[in-house]
Design a binder for these strands. Sequence first.
DNA 1: GCAGTTCGGTGAACCGTTTCAGTGAACCGC
DNA 2: GCGGTTCACTGAAACGGTTCACCGAACTGC
Lengths: 331, 331
Amino acid sequence: MPQPRKRATIREVAKATGLSPAAVSYALRGMQVSGETIERVRRAAAELGYEADPIARALASGRTGMIGLLCGSLEDLWQQALAVGIGRALKDNDRYALILDAAGDPARERTLAGQLRDQRVDALIVQPVDPASPFWASMCESLPVVAIGDALAGARTAGEVVFDNRTGVTLSLEHLGDRGHRRIAVLTPTRDSTPDRPADVHVLAEAERLGLDIEVVTAPQALADATEAADRALAAGHRAFFCFADSIAYGVYAAAAGRGLAIPGEVAVMGYDDHPMSGLLSPGLTTVDWDIDGIVRAAVRMVVGAVDGRPHRRRIVQSPHLRERGSVGSG
Amino acid sequence: MPQPRKRATIREVAKATGLSPAAVSYALRGMQVSGETIERVRRAAAELGYEADPIARALASGRTGMIGLLCGSLEDLWQQALAVGIGRALKDNDRYALILDAAGDPARERTLAGQLRDQRVDALIVQPVDPASPFWASMCESLPVVAIGDALAGARTAGEVVFDNRTGVTLSLEHLGDRGHRRIAVLTPTRDSTPDRPADVHVLAEAERLGLDIEVVTAPQALADATEAADRALAAGHRAFFCFADSIAYGVYAAAAGRGLAIPGEVAVMGYDDHPMSGLLSPGLTTVDWDIDGIVRAAVRMVVGAVDGRPHRRRIVQSPHLRERGSVGSG
DNA sequence: GCAGTTCGGTGAACCGTTTCAGTGAACCGC
DNA sequence: GCGGTTCACTGAAACGGTTCACCGAACTGC
């Protein structure tokens, strides 16, 4: 059990400069003190190796300078990329991200969001698993929340970067339909316990409109799990897949390879999200792309704006495009 | 600016139960109080919706129950997978991971490690960018540190999961040599500012031994950057690549495709790490694999053991195997 | 020359826990 | 019935900052 090295406290800096702790506190944050004093305090602090204790600061001020990032499921490569991107963008804004993983579980999502609040994060960015939960309304009461993906129902968010999933779904299903696929397995990460998301509901509506025969199958995004789910669907005779995440589509590639089935000759696959790896597969994965850099920038601008109390756009809708690469042949 | 909902404090619970705050504190942690009182306190706490404030708790006790995870570079897909894996494994041990990204920068690594200490994480897991820094010794004085990858020089770590990079490098270079490749571009994420890591040094020694003509090129792990670096190497006439991360090898695939060069016919590529996606490419990426689940389990066991003061293995060496998939033809 | 500001700074309360050093009562053996 | 433990609990001091209320001195306008 190593003992923590004793750090200098604000009182020691005060003693060294002959000022009160309060003055030191103000000086180091550049408030209400003369320039000459600030310089003196800076010097003394540097000499003593003093740096304000973030925990004590958080307790007293209620702020931390950190921003919570609550991801829906970090098994998903695209969401991993999003998290990394947001982390780096926040760093460029001199802020730190606290990244947590809801693992696709609505209950866990609520727990973690509450913990981030208790940790005094200045704001929260969330890619909600369960956007319909009334919990979000109370969350938005206590700190600025920026939602990515789906808007939070009935909550006063500080901003939202909404994906136009209706268009995304329509593009995907139409593409499959145009290529002659009528019986389609829809692989979605949504857990049974999650209330139907707008996107999922829209899948049913569009399938009806286009006269498609679909079966919705739950598939986790981790490659091994997705492969297993895809393999079961292949065993059940499915040959056309609409995957609600590129990560899941990768599982279809793996499962098809395992059964010696060729893509796109014998199996058709559509992804959703456009992860960088999707362009590297053979054939490339046909998918629907979101502008991930744009999403990152928008979310970070919103959250930083909200924290600093600056005006900012509260709502941006991301439109998808079909990225055709060859994984959907004619059926 | 939303106002934080007022939460119940320990004093209110004390008042409600007619006990002192100290008694409540003890009761909720099941220490030194009668079972009947514990039950009474529990009930009152539940009724008031009381939960101990983690920040105040951290300030008073110096502990948080969180474990810091400092990654070398989260641009790397394999490291992303490792981070996610560790996060989930810690969750299974009822602990939370605080994930930070050093972005390949030794200075940033030191800064972030210090911040995690200041945040009172109970322990730190680090995949060091700069394992030779004397900084780690002082870090290990103030909290348990578990190192993944390279051992920390001159530091009393709580544990280390060391990769046998010597063997990994030897396997890789021998494989390339056996297939008749003599002139090899080594793509490594190591920044110029980083002191040479043992693995990098070993590359030079082994190249010498095997009579290979190598050129070391710095390449970031982000796909776009790796592709660019690989493209420059291709332009310089390189046709055989040893990439020090699968993520970098993906860049070679992309660059080769961009120039219409076939793998393995015209370009040979070796990866390092074995990310799940590597098996999905065509041809599959020949690489050196580490048992990522084993690494996760070992690191988590070590860190949890160190925090709980239980005895645990302090050092595990991971041995690599060659995972031949077809991306290295005969040159 | 006097009320009214502004400036630079102080003292003390406060944030919400944990923990150390007691303390009174019950219980023990003898 | 007496010293010695144990038990269940209390009071107050940390932990290391921030912030509020206030204060004297130096300006300001008139």
